[in-house]
Design a protein around this nucleic acid. Sequence first.
DNA 1: CTGTTAGCGCTTTCAT
DNA 2: ATGAAAGCGCTAACAG
Lengths: 342, 342
Amino acid sequence: MQNNVTIHDLATALNIDASTVSRALNDSPRVAQRTKDKILAKADELGYQRNVLASNLRKNTTNTIGVIVPRISRHFFSSAIAGIEETAFQLGYNVIICQSLESLERERNLVASMMANRVAGVLVSVSMETTNYAHLQLLKKNGIPFLFFDRHCEIDGNSNVLIDDFQSGFDATEHLILNGCTQIAHFSGPQSLKIYENRARGYRAALEKHHISYQPELVLQSRLMEEDGMESAKKLLTLNRRIDGVFAANDVSAIGAMKYLKKAGVKIPDDLAIVGFSNEPIAAVIEPSLTTIDQSGHEIGKRATALLLQQIKSEEQVVQPETLVLKTALIARDSSKYVKKE
Amino acid sequence: MQNNVTIHDLATALNIDASTVSRALNDSPRVAQRTKDKILAKADELGYQRNVLASNLRKNTTNTIGVIVPRISRHFFSSAIAGIEETAFQLGYNVIICQSLESLERERNLVASMMANRVAGVLVSVSMETTNYAHLQLLKKNGIPFLFFDRHCEIDGNSNVLIDDFQSGFDATEHLILNGCTQIAHFSGPQSLKIYENRARGYRAALEKHHISYQPELVLQSRLMEEDGMESAKKLLTLNRRIDGVFAANDVSAIGAMKYLKKAGVKIPDDLAIVGFSNEPIAAVIEPSLTTIDQSGHEIGKRATALLLQQIKSEEQVVQPETLVLKTALIARDSSKYVKKE
DNA sequence: CTGTTAGCGCTTTCAT
DNA sequence: ATGAAAGCGCTAACAG
């Protein structure tokens, strides 16, 4: 029992043409106010609902924006998605969410499916495997605007909405130094991802600024698997020396490390300072009282969507690519102190 | 530059009719295999891509399923969404995600928008304010199948996919009792939500089974706000008596309570046992080594989607409503012990 | 097994 | 300011 009222029904009921009704419903300036009022009243009376599918076909686009993230259930992404949904909904857009699960092949399929569904635009946080951008260029060829968030990607003409990783890494490390730490371990992520590279550069820059020697063995890589974190903790113990601070640039490793220490029966010294990027789960581990301060995902989602919709609406005009850089909140284990930026 | 190859192009290229091409592409049994092969080859050659919008209009439906949750960034929901996306993607469906933010009005709008977009089906976890189901009945009138997950809702003809809350509440409480607790506080949620009512009933039943008197002052209500949890902790302290176990049926309260205790300078005794529903953030607070065992959201998402798609495909046939009940994992603070069900 | 025909409901020239 | 007409690309009767 679909609602079967069409613009033709309205038209015949009012003894005018369907095209006028269509214009009125789209608030075209080319219809007299009097007629508009009459039409809107009638539409209301008959319970008219625009058939979005027909409109979509005709206009060859939809009011849907596509979102591709590596993994929906990661807290950063789910809060970004929340921000995206809120902004999109406000402006009358729907949001299709897909996860690449860090697979390039899946990401390719998703992009293809989104093109097939004629999304109005795409927000993408590329998978770890993505080093080739051919699939994204296809979007461009089809005139579908897209932009990157969280994970940086250099394609000319495309905007990025990012955390300032270098600065955040610098701040995190400096925070530890200013609190008296000199032996600072750094849990990093895959160096193929710019965000981890930049955080690591920030770490190094802070050490340099404060004349603390950079010790490569204190920097622990990870493929964002808990196993890697466990391995890292093991390595640190093997070094058999005092560590007085940790800058954890990814939460998965940090959790893995904690698991390892727990299993090995090693108690984390109360005076070991830990600074991590804001993220609800890791924040909860480190400092329960700070579990809710992280709004960076949400904020990034909102900004990215606003920017994308702006591009969608500006139609064919070339849009200046933009790199929006946000500050993130940091979480510190040294009790009530924490650095909250911006 | 859209790909402009249509079935007509294929048809003229092969000297057959467009309708045959259409049938072939839909793998209709009414086309000779030879012709199918020819058509598929040609389609491949010319890089044909079906225009989904036209197909949607003609069939008056889409390959999209709508999902309405109270809040995307809550861990349970984001993992449910991940499960939904995976199952849907596998079967060629897209997923539109929206959040009601616990508002009935917003939920109404979302349902309307989904109908307007002719989604193939809807999965909904109703908002806390939802006691009137008129908006959902509209879906039914429009022939759009829908079902409930996580939050139970009795509409005849509709299925539910749920956690067995009574049993889980019972198990959680009994677990504490079997570990020697007798003074067990219960952090509950809004009793208007069946899930909290049932968990509370489970709590009570376990006490009864073990002949422990039920003490109403140990049951703390909440509207799922951290403030309520803080209030609850305060109340417990005021009672000024020994509590040896806590069954936390909602994580928000638990986190609020922890914040309060921290602020008040009250250390949680090491021997206080805590059992909560599995949820990554709260699990991290209670027991870092158990942060990843929770799959219940994901599992519910997958099952709900499978059930919905089954209904979508069975078309007009009346489907027997089903209530799928899953077990949830429990997290216990008493170190390595935890109850993991099913 | 294939072709013919007729739209789905809307938008958008082009004409008046 | 409004009407007439065409058609987006596909699917599904209905014929044969």
